[in-house]
Design a protein around this nucleic acid. Structure first.
Length: 261
DNA sequence: ATGACATATGAGATATGA
């Protein structure tokens, strides 16, 4: 079962690109972030025509998350516990039952947090604390669980081309990385690093500016965290970096795993 | 130090992003 995550940076501006990758990779579940549209404006029929179920948690202009899936979603949750009606749309989760191969998947768009020293950074840290609390509850279910998305976290120096440029940034500060590590210490496995523990130069984001893609000046900030029951089934993980070279690309690329059914 | 790019909104310029 292929499960992927992709910050699409506007689904309406990127619909052809999204369809092209879906046809190429044929994922069973695709978590999208930064769809940048309201729930009712999501181009659901395009994907339904390709055989996908579509669930969306959108908002006007910014943020917004969705999950495309071949299996019918159940137990859908929109928003993280603690969200209110005005909270940005950054979390959607569903259960995909397939006999013994059932899996619960969340699409996560974690706040960026810059600039540090403002309420944006404290909001990011608080959001990570809320996510951790929710993850604890999900882990207690002892199910295959995949928390996939744009974490806006550079977990280690290995995950940036120039880590020294990020030491005071919200993506790489010790307080940020500590919270990501706390999630791992709960028993969640970073799928890409489980498959490629020490491999340098594997990134999921390249800035649009200053020729970042051409110089491979990237960051690995899109992650799939797996419960033990999912990690036991992990077969492969990959980052589809070639998509960054397509016309009018998102600044992020899809990250995909294959778990045994 | 600044801007470089890109998108949404809405019709020019600003907010957001990482």
């Amino acid at each position: 079962m292929i499960i992927a995550t992709w910050n699409i940076n506007s689904i309406r501006a990127r619909i052809d690109t999204a369809v092209a990758w879906v046809k190429e990779a044929n994922p069973d579940v695709l978590c999208l972030q930064e769809i940048k549209c309201e729930t009712n404006s999501f181009p659901s029929t395009v994907f339904e025509d390709l055989g996908y179920n579509v669930i969306v948690h959108g908002q006007k202009s910014y943020n917004g998350v969705a999950i495309l899936s071949k299996l019918k979603p159940e137990d859908v949750r929109r928003g993280l516990p603690g969200d209110d009606a005005e909270s940005p749309a950054r979390y959607i989760e569903a259960l995909f039952p397939a006999g013994s191969a059932m899996v619960r998947v969340a699409s996560i768009y974690l706040p960026n947090g810059n600039p540090v020293g403002t309420e944006k950074y404290t909001y990011k840290l608080a959001w990570m604390d809320r996510l951790t609390l929710h993850a604890r509850g999900l882990l207690a279910l002892e199910e295959p669980l995949v928390l996939a998305g744009d974490y806006n976290v550079i977990p280690a120096a290995l995950d940036a081309k120039f880590p020294e440029n990020w030491v005071t940034d919200a993506l790489f500060l010790p307080e940020t990385r500590a919270r990501y590590r706390i999630m791992q210490n709960l028993g969640l496995t970073d799928a890409v690093r489980a498959i490629m523990p020490d491999k340098p130069g594997i990134y999921s984001f390249w800035d649009y500016q200053a020729g970042a893609w051409q110089r491979n000046n990237g960051l690995r900030i899109d992650h799939l965290l797996l419960s033990p029951q999912a990690a036991d089934r992990l077969k492969t993980a990959r980052i589809d970096a070639h998509v960054r070279g397509w016309e009018r690309p998102s600044d992020h690329v899809p990250v995909a795993i294959d778990i045994a059914e």
